Simulated assay, not measured.
Amino acid sequence: MSSRFTDVSFLTDVVPEDQVETDPDALDAYAGDEGPHPARRPDAVVHAHGTDDVSAVLAACHDRDVPVTPRSGGSSIEGNPIPVAGGVVLDTYPMDDVDVRPADRLAVTGPGVVYDDLNDHLAPYELRFAPGIAAGNLATVGGMIANDASGLNAVKYGVTADHVRHLEVVLADGSIIEFGRSVAKSASGYRLKDVFVGSEGTLGVVTEATLALEPRPIERRAALATFPTREAAGDAVANVMAGPLTPGALEYLDSAAARLLDETNDAGLPDAPQLIVELHGTNDGVAADLDVVRDACEDAGCTGFETATEAEIDRLWAARRDVYPAACDYREDATVAFIGDVVVPVSRYPDHRRARRPARRRTRRHRALRRPRR
């Protein structure tokens, strides 16, 4: 876990001393993320309280060739906040200001704002930041932008990049620059903000983001459809997406994942391939949309179709979010070897479900679909 020591004594000349951590026990908390990748202890952690802190630290480290790894919530499972070269972890988690502009359907936030907290803040305005993610209670706006995160609602609302209007970014040498505009349409020059979304902190550190918001759905309806085979579930996905409506969320769970959740979380899921479908609307017409989804699933040979109450919807998604931690906790003597999403065009999803199983079966999570990137 330890790294080759780098002299970081200059940091207390750059930011207040109480914002710098060098105690090994404190550094260990910033050595890894939520994934299976090896941890690496940094030489120091700086807790940035604003753009000026970020700029000053990056400029000082740039002058001394000290590596810097940006970090916010640390909920990633891909290893990007791990300081593999030691040096400084730049913690932007304290930067959690939120300014809501309801008339423009925008929110201006710091990178340390937690996804669920942001939506709680937006609830009184009947707005929300839509790209729902599994780790919403941990993931931050800065991390979502760095990873171009998406999740349960991507099929209808897209990924993080679809909602980023404007960014304030600090480059490696401490320069502060801004990209984008706080409007939906702008044809004035290159869309440079899109270069930073998904760059995982390699190009600069986001210190402020202007995000486009969506109205909160007035009506939410959901159903759990079960199938005799995973191939039939794949056919149902294609049927639903070829129809006249777009679900708010559409997720696939295989029977192995369902059994795992039943054993570890008492989730009460059927032991079968299944789809969780959620529909959003602004009136009672969303109930009729459920009949359209039911017909699409029955055409694929579904063996069960149960609608869910509001409380049951939350229970279903809570179970879905627990697949990864349940897999990690299932066997204390085992580690998760690989984590990843399989992304294919919707029309090819049935082919993907028909693909030959690997010789060694694993419990894996599959996102049924993701809207094509613009």
Rank of each mutant, 00 (worst) to 15 (best):
A31P: 03
A184W: 09
D266F: 15
L58F: 04
E178W: 08
V15I: 04
G50M: 07
D284L: 06
V68Y: 00
D116L: 06
G87F: 00
G143R: 00
I82A: 03
P38E: 07
P270E: 07
Y125T: 10
A300G: 03
S9I: 12
V164L: 00
L152S: 04
R4V: 13
T207Q: 11
H37L: 14
T363C: 12
S182K: 13
V343D: 09
P345Y: 05
V277G: 02
R373M: 11
D314L: 11
E251F: 02
L203I: 07
I145V: 12
A355Q: 10
L275R: 00
V286P: 03
R216G: 06
G87Q: 01
G32P: 04
E306R: 13
G189Y: 14
D52H: 07
D120I: 08
A44T: 08
V57Q: 04
P67Y: 06
A107I: 09
A123N: 06
D13L: 14
D162Y: 12
D65S: 14
A232N: 14
R315P: 03
A296G: 02
D148R: 04
N265M: 12
A149G: 10
R40S: 02
E126S: 14
V277M: 09
S55T: 14
T207H: 03
F5H: 15
A134V: 05
G301N: 15
A172Y: 06
G201I: 02
R357F: 08
R105L: 06
V293M: 14
G304A: 08
T229Q: 09
S188T: 15
P345Q: 11
Y324P: 10
L192Y: 10
Y93W: 13
D97R: 15
A139K: 02
D271I: 09
P325F: 09
V197Y: 00
R371M: 04
S75A: 08
R128V: 00
A236Y: 00
E168T: 14
T109C: 11
G301D: 06
S3M: 14
